[in-house]
């Protein structure tokens, strides 16, 4: 797949030598940038994760103590809790975003409404994440909107405490900020589906559900995969919702990094980072294998080439 553009460039070489050298220079520059900007920091992370830190110094010997610091019950619980919350919120995002993206791409005609909706999907990227999250406090708090409504209507006598400073609050706080990250890729990939294919499916007697399942979903798969990645990966590192809405009652992995770095325990922070990297790679491999078993593996990003 990826060999095609390079092969095209090579065959064109004798005719357009300048263009080729520019192309090569660009590839070389990007490779260097990638090595320096991505690979080296990751390698440094792994190297630091096997050093020993003492006070303000590193001890220059290989040690797996940082990993021993990480693999203790309460830190593993934190990692598992984070993965669970991220998985649940990502699933909720998908359930909310897919019908919305479908409607936006295929159900809504081009016009003002569509433009305004698309702008609304971009606006959150310009707002401070803390400002977007903190608004939940006066809504979910003991004297917040919901508790006031519940008590004044006589449903409860005392404020419901688990609305804020709880896992529930963190789920709520994560849904809003990551919604556009799920909608955009799905919207784009659904928009790219040729209307003729949907019409053909209907002409051949498929029901709406059948068309959705056998035509739209497989063709939208690149967008869904991208949406899941863009939503889940940044969410793993989110420390805003857990700090502002968890109130120190729900420990998540991002806070773990902050605290380890604050405690100058860089090797353990690096070990936690390396472990998480391992989890990412493992997850990606598992998703890849699962998709291949369903027959969609290698072609999953084929739609992106259009």
């Amino acid at each position: 797949m990826s060999a095609e553009p390079i092969a095209a460039g090579t065959t064109a070489a004798p005719r357009r030598p300048r263009a080729v050298s520019l192309e090569r220079a660009a590839v070389a520059a990007l490779t260097v940038l990638w090595v320096v900007g991505v690979l080296l920091p990751i390698l440094s992370l792994i190297v630091i994760s096997v050093l020993q830190g003492r006070g303000l110094s590193f001890i220059w010997t290989v040690s797996f103590q940082p990993y021993a610091d990480i693999f203790v019950d309460y830190r593993i619980e934190t990692v598992l809790r984070t993965l669970r919350i991220v998985a649940v919120v990502t699933a909720i995002e998908f359930v909310l975003a897919f019908p919305f993206a479908l409607w936006l791409a295929k159900g809504l005609r081009e016009g003002w409404t569509k433009s305004i909706l698309l702008v609304f999907l971009v606006v959150p990227f310009f707002l401070s994440p803390a400002a977007r999250t903190i608004v939940w406090r006066p809504i979910l708090g003991r004297e917040g909107l919901i508790n006031t409504a519940l008590m004044s209507s006589g449903i409860t006598d005392a404020p419901v405490d688990w609305l804020l400073f709880s896992e529930f609050a963190i789920h709520i706080g994560l849904i809003g900020p990551y919604f556009p990250s799920m909608v955009w890729p799905i919207f784009i990939s659904v928009s790219l589906i040729d209307d003729e294919l949907i019409k053909a499916s209907r002409d051949l007697g498929a029901t709406a559900a059948q068309t959705l399942r056998h035509v739209v979903l497989p063709l939208a798969m690149p967008g869904i995969a991208a949406g899941v990645i863009f939503t889940a990966i940044p969410m793993l590192g989110d420390n805003i919702a857990s700090t502002l809405l968890g109130g120190g009652q729900v420990s998540l992995i991002a806070e773990g990094f902050d605290d380890l770095i604050r405690a100058m325990n860089f090797p353990a922070a690096a070990a936690l980072g390396s472990t998480l990297l391992g989890v990412f790679i493992l997850t990606a491999v598992l998703i890849g294998l699962a998709l291949r078993r369903r027959g969609g593996g290698p072609d999953i990003f084929a739609g992106m080439k259009q």
């Binding site: 320096v36 900007g37 080296l40 920091p41 440094s44 190297v47 630091i48 050093l51 830190g53 003492r54 303000l56 110094s57 590193f58 001890i59 220059w60 100058m264 860089f266």
Partner: peptide, 18 residues
């Protein structure tokens, strides 16, 4: 012991370009 500054500086050399 090797100072943290030396190690961090070494590790961060790649990032220094940015």
């Amino acid at each position: 012991k090797i100072s943290r500054r030396t190690v961090i500086k070494g590790a961060a050399m790649g990032a220094a370009a940015f």
